[in-house]
Amino acid sequence: MESLSNRKKVLEQKPMTFMERMYLPAIFQGLSITIKHFFRKKPTIQYPEQKREFSQNFRGIHSLKRDEDGRERCTACGLCALSCPAEAITMTAAERKPGEEGLYREEKYAAVYEINMLRCIFCGFCEEACPKEAIYLDGDIAPANFERDTFIYGKDRLLEPIHNKVQNS
């Protein structure tokens, strides 16, 4: 019967030749292919010692930034916590006392700032929401651990260390 599209092709299966039926040439072909792979350079990256370079827009662990005078930028406005789709961020605000001007940039600062790394999905919305440019996801991959408590990162682990320049002055 004539097919509608006229594009039908009848597949012809030829019987195997004697060489093909002998099976051995195919085995030698296979052996030569595998031995080529034996000497090929391995693409493995040996992870803990050797790390793959992160891409430009990689989002890792958060860090709380300081300004050029070494003061904390965060003003505990709560926009990051509000924008967080995973509800990973909590904070407690406190008022800056006189004499603490070198520590905090604004009158209000975050006394407690915690991110639960098990909840965090590293979407980067907090970074986008922050009006003070105080939080960036520029760190490494969150390391594994055995205890759940250790995944709640406080200010001790999030806050950027004070610049050397500031420490000297």
Binding site: H37, K42, T44, Q46
Partner: peptide, 10 residues
């Protein structure tokens, strides 16, 4: 080891 080498692993 050789299985790794033949499969482009270490």
């Amino acid at each position: 080891k050789f299985a790794g080498f033949l499969q482009d692993r270490l």
